[in-house]
């Protein structure tokens, strides 16, 4: 059963724009986990994981096991962060939003 149902088709399009548009696939140079990355500015980064990528990142798996569900693992994986920086450096990730998304 759906909830919070939008009444306009434009809203469905907005949902797509804000959650999926401009997501660039980045592969971790270390563990090869693939995530979606978006940067609205130099210091702003969104990273969309998938269950598959989460299972593939040894750093995340290890820290998650250590946290035992009590606190969410929040620090970014440093290897993935480096891979994202590399993707920015060689122009694969464009910095700057398109009208807010």
């Amino acid at each position: 059963m759906a909830s919070f149902v939008p009444t306009s088709q434009d809203t469905v399009e907005d949902q797509r724009l804000y959650t999926q548009a401009r997501l660039v696939e980045v592969e971790c140079l270390d563990c090869l986990a693939r995530v979606g990355v978006k940067k609205n500015s130099e210091h702003q980064t969104s990273v969309q994981w998938t269950a598959e990528a989460q299972a593939q990142c040894p750093d995340l798996v290890r820290r998650k096991a250590a946290a035992d569900g009590a606190r969410l693992v929040h620090a970014r994986c440093p290897r993935l962060a480096a891979s994202i920086e590399a993707a920015v450096a060689d122009g694969r990730i464009q910095i700057g939003a398109e009208d807010g998304y």
């Binding site: 210091h43 998938t50 269950a51």
Partner: peptide, 13 residues
């Protein structure tokens, strides 16, 4: 849906 529970990280400048 899987994306409802998949990890998402956001850092704002």
């Amino acid at each position: 849906e899987p994306e409802m529970r998949a990890r998402f990280e956001f850092e704002v400048d």
